[in-house]
C-alpha cells in the first residue's frame, strides 16, 4: 500500500477534480473550484505527511526521478513535462477572458439607525410592524397586502414570490427570492421595511445601489401599504420574520 502512496494521492486529486468539475450542476464558478481544489490539495498533502511511513512512500517516486533511479524516458518526461505544465497553466490563467469585472456586493447591507419616509423620521431599532398588533384583522390585512403585491411587486418578485417575475431576468442582482431561507426569513420586519421604503437608491455603497432596480416604494405606497405588503410576502412565502426576545430590542435606547 505504502508503495503506491504517490500514485494514490495523485489519482485521488485528479478524481476529486474531475468530480467537482463534472458533477456539480450548474458548474461551480472558478473561484469556488479554486478554493475547493486548494483545500483538497492541502488535505491530501497533510494526510500523506501525517504518518512517517506514508510520507516516505510518497516521496519515493519523485526522489527516484530526481536521483536518476528510473529509466531515462521517464526522467525526461517528468523533467520536461513539469515546466511545460507550469507554463501552460500560467498561460491559461494570464490570458484575459474579458469577463465583466466582479463587483462585490453586500447581500444584507447595514441598515442606518434612522431614515426618512415621506418626510417623517423613523428610528429603525424600535420599529415593528404596527399591523401585527391586531391579530383579528391580520387576514384582512394580508389580503390587502396581496393586492398591493400583485399590483406592484410581482413583476420582479414573481407570482410564486420566488424572485422570478416577468422582469426578473433583466436585473442583476436578481430580485430577492422570498422563498429562500436566506432572505426575508432571516431578517426583521423593520429591515424589510427599510429596504422596501428606500429601495435601491437607499442602499449603502457596498451594496451597489446603482444596480438595484428596487424602486423607492415610499414614492408610490403609503407607510401602511408597505407594512401590508410585508405582511403578505411573509404569509405568502410561508416564512416568519426574525424576532428577538422580548424587551431586548431597545436596550441601546435610553
Amino acid at each position: 500500500m505504502v508503495r503506491w502512496t504517490f500514485a494514490l494521492a495523485l489519482g485521488l486529486w485528479l478524481a476529486v477534480f474531475a468530480t467537482l468539475r463534472l458533477f456539480i450542476i450548474p458548474p461551480a464558478p472558478v473561484s469556488v473550484l479554486t478554493i475547493y481544489m486548494t483545500l483538497v490539495t492541502v488535505a491530501i498533502l497533510l494526510f500523506v505527511m501525517a504518518n512517517e511511513a506514508r510520507w516516505q512512500g510518497f516521496l519515493a517516486p519523485p526522489r527516484a526521478v530526481f536521483a536518476g533511479r528510473v529509466s531515462r524516458p521517464v526522467q525526461v518526461t517528468v523533467l520536461a513535462g513539469l515546466p511545460i505544465l507550469v507554463g501552460f497553466v500560467a498561460h491559461l490563467r494570464l490570458t484575459p477572458t474579458w469577463d465583466a469585472p466582479f463587483e462585490p456586493r453586500v447581500v444584507h447591507p447595514q441598515p442606518p439607525s434612522s431614515f426618512t419616509i415621506q418626510g417623517r423620521r423613523i428610528e429603525l431599532a424600535a420599529l415593528t410592524n404596527p399591523l401585527r398588533s391586531d391579530p383579528a384583522a391580520l387576514d384582512q390585512r394580508i389580503a390587502e397586502g396581496k393586492t398591493i403585491y400583485y399590483r406592484n411587486c410581482f413583476f420582479c418578485h414573481g407570482d410564486a414570490l420566488a424572485g422570478d417575475g416577468p422582469f426578473a431576468q433583466v436585473f442583476r442582482p436578481l430580485p430577492a427570492n422570498f422563498r429562500d431561507v436566506g432572505t426575508i426569513s432571516m431578517l426583521q420586519e423593520s429591515f424589510v421595511f427599510w429596504r422596501v421604503a428606500t429601495g435601491g437608491p437607499g442602499l449603502p455603497k457596498g451594496a451597489t445601489p446603482w444596480h438595484s432596480a428596487m424602486p423607492v416604494w415610499q414614492q408610490f405606497l403609503a407607510e401602511e401599504e408597505i407594512w401590508k405588503a410585508i405582511l403578505f410576502i411573509y404569509a405568502g412565502s410561508g416564512s416568519t420574520p426574525r424576532t428577538w426576545e422580548e424587551g431586548t430590542a431597545d436596550v441601546n435606547r435610553h
Partner: peptide
C-alpha cells in the same frame, strides 16, 4: 469554506441564475 455569495463572472452567474449556487448555496 463555501461562500454564500459566490464570486463569479457574468457567465457563471447566468448559469447559476444569481449569485447563489442552487446546490452549493
Amino acid at each position: 469554506a463555501t461562500p454564500r455569495s459566490i464570486i463569479a463572472t457574468g457567465a457563471e452567474m447566468a448559469a447559476m441564475g444569481g449569485s447563489h449556487h442552487p446546490f452549493l448555496g
